[in-house]
């Protein structure tokens, strides 16, 4: 069992990293409106592997609430929460039950896909039209393949490094 203070510190660090990634990716131009690199997803993956479902979801929720407050609008919370929670749940299911069948890149891509789906569902609900879903889904899916692969790769290297360097216990 990892010491409580140690675990809390690590989780706090991960939240801070997720927030910074969330913030700086706002400055990186992307090809399509709505498409994002989803760098914070790297942290979600790392937390999921090193700690577990509960801790990963806690990080996702804290990041989703605080992230838009750093540099965005308050309605952004709704989008990032819906996307983050849905993708977090999907990635947890895939990682915890089907770890042997998926690579990190596959899980991360699935997470990116469901992040987009969650956001688009909320957008359709807010704008009261399902058309948003149809219009944006194809381009966001293509973006998700690229960013999901990259994020999965990064998460794999981070986990590989941290697993040896950080004494996690449990």
């Amino acid at each position: 069992m990892m010491k409580k203070a140690r675990k809390l510190t690590l989780l706090g660090l991960l939240v801070a990293q997720a927030l910074v990634l969330h913030y700086i990716e706002g400055f990186i131009p992307v090809l399509a409106p709505g498409a994002k690199l989803g760098l914070a997803n790297i942290i979600t993956m790392v937390a999921l592997v090193l700690f577990g479902f509960k801790e990963a979801m806690a990080i996702v929720i804290i990041r989703a609430v605080l992230g838009p407050l750093l540099g965005g609008s308050v309605t952004g919370i709704l989008y990032s929460l819906s996307g983050g929670i849905l993708s977090g749940i999907i990635m947890s299911i895939l990682y915890q039950n089907f770890k042997d069948y998926f690579s990190f890149m596959g899980i991360s891509t699935a997470g990116a896909v469901f992040h987009n789906i969650g956001q688009l569902l909320v957008a359709s609900w807010i704008f009261d039209t399902i058309g948003i879903l149809y219009t944006y889904l194809p381009i966001l899916m293509v973006a998700a393949v690229a960013t999901g692969y990259f994020n999965g790769l990064v998460a794999r290297y981070i986990v590989g490094y941290l697993k040896n360097k950080v004494e996690l216990g449990s």
Binding site: L94, Y101, F102, S103, M105, G106, T109, V113, A144
Partner: peptide
């Protein structure tokens, strides 16, 4: 590094 069977399902789903 090579894709696993589950990854293929992810891409098919997309």
């Amino acid at each position: 590094m090579k894709p696993r069977i589950g990854d293929v399902f992810v891409y098919i789903f997309i």
